Simulated assay, not measured.
Amino acid sequence: MNIGLTGGIATGKSTVSSMLIRKGALLVDADIIAREVMLPGHPVLAAVAAHFGQDIIQADGQLDRKKLGEVIFNDPEERLALNGITHPAIRQEIRRQMAEYEAAYPDRLVVVDIPLLYESELQTLFEKVVAVYVPREKQIERLMERDKITEEQALARLNSQMDIEQKKSMADEVIDNSGTMEETSEQVDKLWSRLVP
């Protein structure tokens, strides 16, 4: 069985995916794939540099994520342009890894962690979608603390994604990660028993 795992920035998707992995799930991580397509020498990075200009590339050939972030978090059209360049390659790699896992381990739960699952309209790839949820105020608080950014910067990032309440209402299952680790772990245990016979 495969599930799509989503949520907003700083809701704790990594925490939940780690708990599922410890239980025996296999993970396909869209964030890791997204970083890999932005490595020096990758055709996707070359296409991004062609669109956004060479100044988003550092002297060592690496992407200057901060510079690119300043552009895309403040300009919805440029964010769409970036997604148009990167998403097809990311989707292709997600599908490849899912197929590989499903062929090699037909009895294991495959968890695909995709922050922008609904925004990318990928929900049809999965048997179930699980959203990791915390209220927006907590999201802002955690994001400011985690990334050492201002409230204004945190809001710009949150506003670049679908609202967490909307994701919560669309999901088949919800893990509320606004309490203690124990409470989250308990919900993951219950989810696991529903998903893995």
Rank of each mutant, 00 (worst) to 15 (best):
E93P: 04
Y105C: 12
Y101A: 08
P76W: 04
I85L: 09
Y101R: 09
E78W: 05
R91E: 11
L82T: 13
D75C: 09
Q97R: 14
I94W: 03
V110W: 01
I90T: 00
G84H: 02
Q97C: 06
I85T: 05
I90E: 00
V110L: 03
Y105L: 14
E102Q: 04
N83M: 11
E77T: 14
E93V: 03
V110P: 02
R96H: 15
R79T: 07
I85S: 10
P106E: 02
H87Y: 04
P88I: 01
D75S: 10
I94V: 13
I90A: 05
Q97E: 08
N83Y: 05
Q97K: 13
Y105K: 13
I85Q: 08
Y101F: 15
N83K: 03
L80D: 11
A104Q: 15
Q97T: 11
E100D: 15
R96Q: 12
T86E: 04
R91L: 10
D75I: 05
R95K: 09
H87T: 05
P106K: 01
R91D: 00
E77R: 14
E102D: 06
I90G: 01
R108C: 02
I90S: 01
A104I: 09
Y101N: 09
R95H: 10
D75V: 00
R108G: 01
M98P: 07
P106D: 03
D75K: 02
E100Y: 02
M98K: 08
Q92I: 00
R96L: 03
Q97A: 12
E100I: 01
T86H: 05
M98L: 14
E102P: 10
D75F: 07
A104L: 15
A104E: 14
D107M: 11
N83Q: 15
V111C: 03
Y105V: 08
A99D: 07
P76C: 12
P88M: 03
Y101V: 04
E93C: 00
A103C: 11
L80P: 03
T86F: 05
R108I: 02
P106W: 04
A99S: 06
I90N: 02
A99N: 04
A103N: 13
R79H: 07
H87P: 01
D75L: 04
H87V: 01
E100W: 08
N83P: 05
I85E: 08
M98C: 13
D107W: 07
A99Q: 05
T86M: 06
Q92H: 10
R96A: 10
R91H: 13
N83I: 06
A103G: 11
A99W: 01
I94A: 08
A103I: 09
Y101T: 09
E102V: 01
R79M: 13
E93G: 02
P106Q: 09
A103S: 15
D75G: 11
E77F: 11
D75E: 14
G84Q: 06
A104Y: 07
N83A: 12
T86L: 10
R79W: 08
E78L: 05
R96N: 12
E100L: 07
Q97D: 04
D75Q: 10
L109Q: 00
A104K: 14
R108H: 03
G84A: 02
D75P: 10
